[in-house]
Simulated assay, not measured.
Amino acid sequence: MEYQIVTEFAELESVCSKARESDVVMLDTEFVRIRTYYPKLGLIQLYDGDQLSLIDPLTISDFTPFIELLKDTSVLKVLHACGEDLEVFANSFNCMPYPMVDTQIMAAFLGYGLSTGFAALVQEYLDVELDKSESRADWVARPLTDKQLDYAAADVYYLWPLYFKLFAKVEAKQWWEAAQQESELLMQKRGRTPNPENAYLDIKGAWQLKRKQLAVLKPLATWRLNEAIKRDLALNFIIKEQELWTVARHGLKKPKQMEQEGIDPRAIRRHGERIAAIVKHAQQTPEEDFPEKIERLMDFPGYKQVFKTLKDEVKKAAQHSGLATEFLASKKQLNQYLSWVWKHQRDPAKLPDVMQGWRLELFGRQLDQVMDV
């Protein structure tokens, strides 16, 4: 397994130009995400079937040739379990690889569980045992060790033959178009920019709060998300989610009160005054401007029975298709569908996953018939 390390613009230009002559390229990234809001890119792996390149993003400032490759619609980019990789591309280069297919998704269309790892597939299809001991390495530290570089190179070197073996099987089972649709759906989800105004809806336990308390939680959650993005810090390193909920629940306006309720002293020192100011301002919100009470699906009449009925329909589709039930429709996706029916009156602009593409054909329409009975 030979590879070259790319550290200069001219090398990057040459490598990407050659890769664009190929119909298919393998891509992967190594990154670190511990305390930061955004993943920190440490290495890019690129393999066109002939030339394997390890691109060092810490030494190159102009990535135009690579961005052009990512956007080149004549080249299919192949990745494995690429949810976070897509976030890396979006954050680092303001674009995503397109068109793209995820081999983990391809494997799911062959009956594997949705979280099947790369090493397991390589072992099964190529009879090669990969060393995954470097998966938690610090990819931003320099210099990278030979062991790290070999590990990173292997991820795209073996992805090449694996992809073609999976492709032959997926195409034979007539799932190729569906695998592309599912990969694109993943890209859409990972590419969504969070709306700070709706951040309060993601706070665990927000449904327990009254409208007046939500009027406090909403600006607090918006501030926390904006602060995390601005400072590139993980949300809980600004202030923990549960502590934010506590502040809103009790309307804490003084650092002393926050301390008594168990809020982290470091968070109080750094942000206590700002939080207090937000709470005081929010408490002046007129009642007509309070956020709506958050309705949980499980509190809707008959939720459990309806959910079970939908789950049974998905199980039937799983038996018929040979695909894993969880892959066809997770609990989250079924709840998304119920929200669409019960809360959004089947708004065509807010189509849930099960009412799009291959899922609609396979069982989505059946779910709708069940709901209309």
Rank of each mutant, 00 (worst) to 15 (best):
D372Q: 15
C82G: 12
A137E: 04
W358T: 08
L220A: 05
D264L: 05
P255Y: 02
K189E: 10
P97Q: 10
L69D: 11
V140C: 12
F89R: 07
Q284I: 00
K253Q: 08
P39Y: 02
N94A: 09
V101C: 02
D72F: 08
N226S: 01
I229V: 10
V247L: 04
T59P: 03
P194Y: 04
A119I: 02
D28C: 01
E177V: 06
L328C: 11
L54Q: 09
W175V: 13
K210R: 12
Y157A: 06
L43F: 06
D85G: 07
G251P: 01
E259G: 12
Q345M: 09
Q104T: 13
G117Y: 02
Q45H: 03
A172C: 09
K254L: 03
D312N: 12
S17A: 13
V373F: 09
D353Y: 07
A221N: 07
L54F: 11
L244N: 00
S22G: 07
L220H: 11
Q242N: 03
L323G: 00
V279L: 13
S74M: 05
V156A: 01
C16K: 07
Q104W: 12
E134S: 12
V15R: 10
P143E: 01
E292P: 05
M106W: 14
G83H: 12
P196I: 14
A277Q: 15
P348M: 01
E13G: 00
F63N: 12
R270C: 02
I263F: 09
D372G: 04
A318I: 05
W175P: 08
Q336G: 15
D312I: 01
I55E: 09
E68F: 08
T59M: 01
R190P: 00
A248T: 03
N236C: 04
E288V: 10
A329V: 01
Q283G: 13
R35E: 10
E273Y: 10
Y158C: 08
L297C: 06
A228W: 02
K189S: 05
M371C: 11
F118I: 09
T285A: 03
E361S: 11
W340Q: 08
I60C: 08
G113T: 05
A199W: 05
I67K: 14
A137L: 08
K71L: 08
D72S: 14
W139V: 02
L52W: 11
A107I: 13
R33D: 02
A19D: 09
A120L: 03
R359K: 13
E243C: 01
P57R: 14
L360W: 15
H271S: 14
Y200H: 12
L367R: 15
R266M: 09
V354L: 01
V314F: 08
A349V: 00
E182F: 07
V156M: 05
L310Q: 04
T29I: 08
L367G: 11
L121Q: 13
N335Y: 03
R365N: 09
P286L: 05
L41P: 04
R274S: 14
V373H: 13
K147Q: 10
